[in-house]
Amino acid sequence: MADITWEDAFCAEGSACYRIGVDREGNSYIAVAGQEATYITDSREALRQLIRDIKAGKADHLLGT
């Protein structure tokens, strides 16, 4: 596993919590909090999954107000 520095989780009431991280080479990672061992990195699939989660209402807390 890459040496990833994770930020604090982004959470909302009743929603999954996401964590965003970065490794020493500057690559970005997204994971569900508590499941950092099964992350996705900065890729098209990572972006697609984030969009699917937003559409499903699972990541509204990432959008801000």
Score class of each variant (00 low, 15 high):
Gln35Asp: 13
Val32Cys: 04
Gln49Ala: 13
Ala31Ile: 02
Thr38Leu: 12
Asp23Val: 08
Glu36Asp: 09
Ser28Arg: 05
Glu45Pro: 04
Tyr18Gly: 00
Gly34Pro: 12
Glu25Phe: 09
Glu36Thr: 13
Ile20His: 02
Glu7Met: 11
Val22Gly: 02
Ala56Phe: 11
His61Lys: 11
Asn27Pro: 00
Phe10His: 07
Ala16Tyr: 03
Arg24His: 05
Gly64Val: 04
Tyr18Arg: 03
Cys17Phe: 11
Leu63Tyr: 03
Ala12Glu: 12
Ser43Gly: 08
Leu63Ala: 03
Ser28Gln: 08
Glu25Lys: 13
Ser43Thr: 15
Arg19Gly: 01
Leu50Met: 15
Gly64Pro: 04
Leu50Gln: 06
Ala9Leu: 05
Gly26Thr: 04
Ser15Gln: 15
Arg48Leu: 12
Asp3Phe: 09
Leu50Lys: 06
Ala56Leu: 14
Gly57Ser: 10
Glu36Asn: 10
Asp42Met: 05
Ala56Arg: 14
Ser15Glu: 15
Ile4Gln: 02
Gly64Asp: 11
Met1Gln: 04
Glu45Ala: 14
Ala59Thr: 06
Arg44Cys: 12
Tyr18Ser: 00
Asn27Met: 14
Ala59Asn: 05
Cys11Tyr: 04
Asp3Tyr: 12
Ile40Phe: 12
Thr41Lys: 02
Glu25Trp: 08
Ile51Asn: 04
Trp6Glu: 01
His61Phe: 06
Glu7Thr: 09
Gly34Arg: 14
Ala16Thr: 06
Asp53Ala: 03
Arg24Thr: 06
Val32Trp: 00
Cys17Gly: 15
Asp23Ala: 10
Ala9Gln: 09
Ser15Lys: 14
Gly26Ile: 01
Ile51Gln: 06
Tyr39Gly: 00
Thr41His: 05
Lys58Thr: 07
Asp53Glu: 09
Asp8Arg: 00
Tyr29Trp: 08
Ala56Trp: 11
Ala12Pro: 03
Ala37Tyr: 09
Ile51Ala: 08
Ala12Asp: 12
Val22Thr: 15
Arg24Gly: 07
Ser15Asp: 13
Ala33Arg: 15
Leu63Val: 01
Ser43Pro: 07
Ser15Leu: 10
Ala33Gly: 13
Arg19His: 07
Gly21Asp: 07
Ala12Leu: 10
Val32Gly: 01
